[in-house]
Design a binder for these strands. Structure first.
Lengths: 168, 168
DNA sequence: CTTATCATGTAAGCGGTTACATGATTAC
DNA sequence: GTAATCATGTAACCGCTTACATGATAAG
């Protein structure tokens, strides 16, 4: 699924602004998808042109007016089609593993630092996700709960793999 | 690291053709990087223009001539710089988790199929990687071994997470 | 007799990223 | 007084994917 479709998915539950869509993707989907304003705003414009969403503007002072997007019937239909289509392969891209693979060109202390840094990065993400999960718990559907669980387990497995290497 | 840099990394150990580079990335890096001919051939051309690689053509009959690429001193230097630079964040993109997240729009048997399909996809990748590992074992450096191990552990953790959901 | 392997490439275009621009308000 | 949050967007460009084109040889 591409950005446009993910946005439709979020809008199928509630009306949202470009800003809130961006931050929702960056928090709720942090462990399996990403977004930037440079993607979201043009995507919303394009979705509007497609007839999949409509906008209502809310006047504000001190800030740009809020543009609240709603999904249309066509939009719902389109998203429903997409969610029933075949799942695309997961993508894992790791610059860390690339560095490790070519580790014979590095000194031992550099490799140790590589591993320690990666451990810290993942620990941070895990901590964040676990604390988010507590906050989200009350409102989560089964599928959402499954996703978070999956994410946490992946992070933990990665930490384990990193720790084991240290004892060697 | 981008495609061009990864190619330089491979060339720093041995001379290779575009074809063999493509297939090496697709097998040895299968679990953390990907390549296509549409990326590799233009990248090699560009690396040549940069002065990071040189080519030697080997005449063949029945097939296009083999173009064997060697890394230059400049190329080695450039790759060495890149490998000492900061590691970029890992990227995990999962269309499967996206589907699960929006699972409330699906029937129970569709979700079961989603999970079972994902389980099979990952099991296939795990089997492939484990059998590859046996074949590679003799020639692997510590870092390469670490990478493969990491990959296998990730796949196993994902399988575990999928199996647990089934008992519920 | 069909599939996999070897071997080269191109061209269009997608789906983003990165960096920039603007600025009030609130919380610490 | 500094940082985070809210809130909009644009423009250039990147890096890659997808699909196509060609075709002999070997293996099963």
């Amino acid at each position: 699924m591409k950005g446009k479709e993910v946005i439709l998915g979020l809008l199928s539950k509630q009306n949202l602004t470009g800003y809130s869509i961006t931050s929702m993707i960056q928090t709720r989907f942090s462990y399996f998808f990403d977004a930037s304003t440079g993607m979201v705003y043009p995507a919303l414009k394009s979705l509007e042109k497609d007839g999949y969403v409509t906008v209502e503007e809310q006047v504000q002072h001190g800030k740009p007016n809020k543009k609240i997007y709603q999904i249309t019937e066509d939009g719902k239909k389109y998203f429903s089609e997409k969610i029933h289509e075949n799942v695309e392969d997961d993508i894992f891209k790791s610059d860390f593993l690339m560095h490790m693979y070519f580790g014979n060109m590095l000194e031992k202390d550099e490799i140790d630092k590589l591993i320690e840094d990666e451990r810290q990065r993942i620990q941070l993400k895990l901590d964040q996700l676990e604390s988010d999960r507590i906050e989200w718990k009350k409102y989560m559907t089964t599928g959402q709960d499954f996703s978070v669980d999956f994410g946490i387990k992946m992070y933990k497995a990665q930490l384990e793999a990193l720790k084991e290497s240290k004892t060697k």
